[in-house]
């Protein structure tokens, strides 16, 4: 635990330095994500969905922001692996003795602050702009936590592929195509999918509805299972990459 705290401290410091060094990146990211939301809203309007209905806008907005959060976790680890391999720092991570799984999970968590800040700012601006009311409760914290951890579990699976196959951009695109609509549309057929279930719980909480214990238990169980599978696959891929001598290759 002490080792993880050391690692988290160092990674949080690095993430902070990189963020403050490129502030425009943060601002432009915010503007870009805001514009994409209006684009989505326009597409929804063209396809006949009434965009004046606050309920529809609320679902779209929450789904969109949760989709962004999920994608940051889903692709973050793999993108970071490619970046570290390119800069040659992946070897140094191995040499630090922390293990790659601990490294990349800690790194993702340490980089969460600016992503969350982005999401909250966008949420507040867009709900205000669209005159949407929402309610906040402490239950939101575990709900968002479980949603993010499930996304992180899936991120480890994608990261495992990146360790072994290096170039997986098409897979990223496919994941985006699948995850975004699933989280935004909240289809009942996909309710079992951890990210959809998490998004549904968060939506209910934001609308002031109570969430039954059954859904919490299911969400917790699913999140734990996804994280365990993610960690297992990532560890196996790490071992396989070392066996094949691929670690650190671009």
């Amino acid at each position: 635990m002490r080792k993880l705290a050391i690692l988290f401290g160092a990674e949080a410091w690095r993430a902070w330095l990189e963020e403050v060094r490129y502030p425009l990146q943060f601002v432009m990211g915010l503007v870009f994500m805001g514009l994409i939301f209006f684009l989505l809203k326009g597409v929804a309007q063209l396809s006949g969905v009434s965009s004046s209905n606050p309920e529809t806008i609320f679902r779209l907005l929450v789904g969109y922001l949760l989709g962004l959060l999920a994608m940051s976790a889903l692709s973050g680890i793999a993108a970071q692996i490619s970046r570290e391999a390119k800069s040659g720092t992946l070897e140094n991570m191995v040499l630090s003795g922390h293990g790659l799984t601990a490294f990349f999970v800690t790194q993702a968590l340490a980089r969460l602050a600016p992503i969350l800040l982005n999401t909250v700012i966008l949420f507040l601006v867009l709900t205000n702009h669209n005159k949407i009311n929402f309610s906040l409760s402490w239950e939101m914290l575990p709900a968002i936590g479980l949603f993010y951890i499930a996304a992180l579990g899936l991120g480890l699976v994608v990261g495992a592929l990146a360790l072994l196959f290096k170039e997986i951009r098409t897979f990223f695109m496919l994941a985006q195509l699948l995850v975004f609509p699933a989280v935004i549309a909240n289809l009942p057929q996909l309710e079992w999918f951890p990210l959809v279930l998490g998004a549904s719980v968060i939506r209910d909480l934001l609308q002031g509805s109570a969430v039954e214990a059954y859904w919490w238990i299911l969400l917790l169980a699913e999140t734990t299972a996804v994280l365990c599978v993610g960690v297992l696959l990532f560890e196996l891929a790490d071992r396989e990459a070392r066996k094949r001598g691929l670690l650190g290759h671009e």
Binding site: R14, L17, E18, R21, Y22, K86, S87, G88, T89, E91, N92, G248
Partner: peptide, 10 residues
């Protein structure tokens, strides 16, 4: 291990 690639560029 690699004298050319070792630093975090940022």
């Amino acid at each position: 291990i690699d004298t050319n690639r070792v630093l975090f560029p940022r």
